[in-house]
């Protein structure tokens, strides 16, 4: 659904996005992570034809956004942080206005979407009377009106209270489950990303420093916690046998390809080293993200 190839965006002498390549296949919930100013919004702006790339190619729904923007965005909905509307008009009028920029939209379709997002009964009120949560629902409604296949969400939970964040998370899951949408989610809420996304990419200072599956991140890339009275001796044995590839922090080992914790346990016991405990280390996306941004001195993008 989204294919970005070697895209660079410069604002004057500052490089906001540097040789970025990404691919979001149909049906995926893809998370875009990064600190403020990492280039997430610029990348999203380029996907929507709002920001012109300095070089590279951005394709959405099979069309080049730069040269075929109208076709590329025909089946795309987008929500930005802090949803803004014409506050002096009703929610309904806002939906009519925004949908008119895509295609003629029937009243029935608007009513259907308003029901779906749970704004029935308030849609005729002026938007200035809406709470932040209701504005978020209206933002979702406007994004859903053109029956999108791809939904781009730029910090959709920004400014929401915990209940609002929970509701937004459930809504995104519903969108994926019930409507089968492909979703690109940019967020600072790593817990949210972990619960929603199937794959993530991490941007740092405009460059992609990681792209991979959330499941792999959780599995800690084969990291295992080993509790033993003599970690150094155990590590030496295991490295010597080729069962592990690395150790860290005096308690973690990284299993070699195809090796299991059972083999490690057997090897240590055979060598007379007691094993108090051994278990697969499961890290959160937050752990992973923090270790990544703390350790990364931006290296050239390998993808």
């Amino acid at each position: 659904m989204i294919s970005i190839t070697q895209v660079t965006k410069k604002f004057g002498s500052r490089t906001a996005v540097d040789h970025l390549s990404l691919s979001v296949p149909r049906g995926e919930i893809f998370g875009l992570l990064g600190h403020n100013g990492a280039g997430k919004s610029t990348a999203i702006g380029m996907m929507l034809g709002q920001v012109w790339p300095t070089s590279g190619e951005v394709r959405v729904c099979g069309f080049d956004v730069t040269s075929q923007r109208n076709k590329a965005l025909q089946k795309v909905g987008a929500i930005f942080e802090a949803p803004v509307f014409y506050d002096y008009l009703s929610g309904w009028r806002n939906l009519e206005i925004l949908s008119s920029y895509t295609a003629p939209t029937s009243r029935e379709r608007i009513r259907e979407v308003v029901d779906w997002v749970g704004l029935t009964g308030r849609v005729e009120s002026k938007v200035r009377t809406y709470s932040h949560g209701m504005r978020s629902r209206l933002a979702l409604a406007q994004a859903l009106l053109p029956k999108p296949e791809l939904l781009i969400l730029d910090e959709p939970s920004d400014g929401l209270d915990p209940e609002g964040i929970h509701e937004m998370r459930n809504t995104i899951q519903r969108l994926h489950r019930e409507l089968g949408l492909t979703i690109l989610l940019s967020s600072h809420l790593l817990n949210e990303v972990e619960q929603l996304c199937t794959r993530i990419a991490v941007l740092q200072r405009g460059r992609k420093v990681f792209e991979g599956n959330v499941a792999d991140v959780r599995a800690g890339r084969g990291r295992v916690t080993l509790k033993t009275p003599d970690f150094a001796a155990a590590a030496a044995v295991l490295l010597g046998l080729g069962l592990i590839t690395a150790t860290s922090e005096g308690k973690f080992i990284s299993l070699g390809d195809g090796h299991t914790t059972a083999e490690v346990t057997q090897a240590l016991v055979s060598s007379g080293i007691a094993v108090d405990g051994i278990w697969q280390h499961e890290q959160t996306v937050e752990d992973f993200y923090m270790s990544l941004v703390n350790s990364t001195t931006v290296a050239p993008d390998s993808n």
């Binding site: 034809g49 923007r69 509307f85 925004l98 920029y101």
Partner: peptide
Amino acid sequence: GTLRMILARPI
């Protein structure tokens, strides 16, 4: 910020 909303559409 409404311009950004509009320009997320195929116009």
